[in-house]
Computed example of a mutant assay.
Amino acid sequence: MLNLIHYAIPAFIILLLIELIFSELTKRHLYDTRDTLSSLTMGIGNVLINLIGKSLALGTYYFAWKYRLFDLGHSVWVWILLLFADDFTYYWYHRLSHEVRYLWASHVVHHSSRRYNLSTALRQTWTGTLSGGFLFWIWLPVLGFHPLMVMTMQSINLLYQFWIHTETIDRLPNWFEFIFNTPSHHRVHHSSEPRYLDRNHAGIFILWDRLFGTFVPEDRRPIYGLTKNINTYNPFRIAFHEWAEIVRDVRHAPNLRSAILYLFGPPGWSHDGTRFTSQQLRETAKVDK
């Protein structure tokens, strides 16, 4: 199966090197060697693991497609419709990956860097596909989109998101900022500050955040990372630290309800109130929910 991400890897590396050189020439020092190597290692691991994970996803999509409601075909209008359907799905998957700890355990990897540059885009999960994240897209082959089209559009969505992981681009024209996800919007998403937490979940179209009330504009340079940074460059700790924390919390939960909430509740939830969710942090900081 054609995987656009694999073909784009040389371009990723070239653009990363250009940004690195530019950041040094302008003395912005956007890169840290250990952080960048960690991000690249996570990206390589993601590609290798997804040789299996994507096969699992594609097989599942083909199974679902056997029971499709319509035969939508491959015309241009179907591709355009799929573009919006895929991005709508991505928005909700991404948003829930910030609101459900089981999903956050995979997605936290992408937010674990305290730097924001093109290498951060490559800091990808090793567990997202294998833990079932692809199931959010299963409604698309059921509706009638061909599985290969679905997988291709998922790759296109990820390709688009590469370039928005940069501080070298400031604001773009207002019309573009209104419709599309941009570096400015996505810098907000990677912030650890309460006013920016769990905002701007868009893949390609920022319209979803505007429509569903999760949009916040960038008004100053964000502080990147997690609300509680893990302070490690070890790729295995980056990949699995939240899963290990979940296991520990579930094992020590005082009752079944608490165990379930430690797994499927919001990140930061605790039965004794010693930790804080994003909503609680925003309330404490007195910013809009």
Score class of each variant (00 low, 15 high):
S97V: 09
Y93T: 08
L122C: 03
R114S: 02
H107G: 10
H185N: 14
H189M: 14
G133S: 13
V188N: 09
Y93F: 14
I169Y: 06
T120K: 01
Y93G: 13
D86V: 10
E99V: 01
F88R: 00
N181A: 14
W175G: 03
H146Q: 12
H165E: 13
H107E: 09
Y91K: 04
G132Y: 00
P183W: 03
Y160G: 03
V142H: 00
P141D: 09
D86I: 11
L96H: 07
L103W: 02
N117I: 13
L135Q: 09
H94S: 08
Y102T: 06
I164V: 15
Q154W: 14
R115H: 09
F176H: 10
I164E: 04
T129G: 10
V109R: 07
F180C: 05
L118K: 04
N181T: 07
S113R: 03
R95W: 14
L172R: 04
H185K: 04
P141Q: 07
E177Y: 08
L122S: 06
W139E: 00
I156H: 10
N117V: 13
T152E: 03
T125G: 07
L96W: 15
L159P: 05
H111F: 01
V108S: 14
G144F: 00
S119H: 08
H111D: 02
W175P: 00
S155W: 13
M149E: 13
L143Q: 04
N157G: 15
A85R: 02
N157S: 13
S131I: 11
H190A: 07
E99N: 10
W163R: 11
L118C: 04
T182C: 07
H185E: 04
V150Q: 05
T125M: 00
F145A: 04
L159W: 03
S119V: 10
L122H: 00
R171G: 07
R123P: 12
S97W: 01
W137N: 12
L135I: 15
W92N: 05
L130G: 05
P147S: 12
R123D: 09
S184D: 10
T125K: 01
V142P: 00
W92E: 04
Q154R: 15
L96I: 10
Y93A: 12
F178K: 15
Y90Q: 12
S106A: 15
N181H: 03
N181S: 13
H186G: 04
F134G: 08
H146D: 14
H146N: 05
W139R: 01
W139K: 02
S131R: 12
M149I: 11
E177V: 13
Y102A: 11
L135K: 09
R115A: 05
L103K: 01
G133F: 11
W139C: 02
H94M: 10
L130D: 02
S155M: 14
V100R: 00
R95K: 13
H146R: 02
L140G: 06
R95V: 12
M149C: 14
V150N: 06
M153R: 00
T127H: 05
H190V: 06
E167S: 11
F88M: 13
A121S: 15
G144R: 01
A121V: 11
P173T: 09
H98I: 08
L148W: 10
V109M: 13
Y102M: 08
L83V: 08
D86E: 12
F136C: 06
